[in-house]
Simulated scan of single mutants.
Amino acid sequence: LCQYKGVKIIEGHMMPDHVHLLVSIPPKQSVSSFMGYLKEKSALMMFDRHANLKYKFGNRYFWSEGYYVSTVGLNEQTIRKYIRDQEKHDLSIDKLTTKEYSDPFKGNKLK
């Protein structure tokens, strides 16, 4: 999909519930139009290749509505490092914030 639009994937990392990508988009194309294209076409490809996902993701919504974008200038190396290290950071934060919650009305732990 990226090659078709002339977009170069520089760096990427898959997370359990999202994707980090560092891409180079040609100046003639807007970021929002490329993201709309990428999300729409990749969702269709996923549903075509994995038909069982249609039942898990009702109404064929595979991606969330939004996305985060930032332009890269002189700090490209910082962004590359962030993409590489984000999973380790997320895992460490999850370990630090693991709590057992209790139901204030029943006085017992929620399951």
Rank of each mutant, 00 (worst) to 15 (best):
D90Y: 00
Q86L: 00
D94A: 15
R49H: 06
T97F: 12
P26L: 09
H89G: 02
N108L: 05
I93W: 06
G58K: 13
H18Y: 13
H89Y: 07
G12C: 05
S42N: 06
S32P: 01
M35N: 02
E76H: 05
S33E: 13
F57K: 07
L1N: 13
Y55H: 12
Y82G: 00
T71N: 09
K39T: 04
L22T: 04
E65H: 11
R84P: 01
D17P: 01
K5V: 04
V69P: 00
H20D: 04
V19C: 07
G66D: 03
R49I: 01
E40G: 11
S24Y: 10
R84E: 11
K81E: 10
F105W: 07
P26I: 10
K88Q: 10
S24N: 12
F62V: 01
R84K: 14
N75S: 12
E65D: 14
L110M: 13
H13I: 02
H50E: 12
G12Y: 10
V31H: 06
S24L: 08
H89K: 07
S64Q: 15
E87S: 02
K109D: 03
Q3V: 10
I79R: 00
P16D: 04
Q86D: 03
E100L: 14
L110R: 10
Q77D: 14
E65K: 11
F105H: 09
E76D: 07
Y82L: 03
S102R: 11
I93V: 15
N59M: 12
L53G: 02
Y4E: 15
Q86K: 00
G36C: 09
S102V: 13
S30L: 05
S32R: 02
L1F: 07
L38F: 15
S92M: 06
N108V: 09
Y82V: 02
N108Y: 05
K109G: 04
C2G: 02
G58Q: 11
F47L: 10
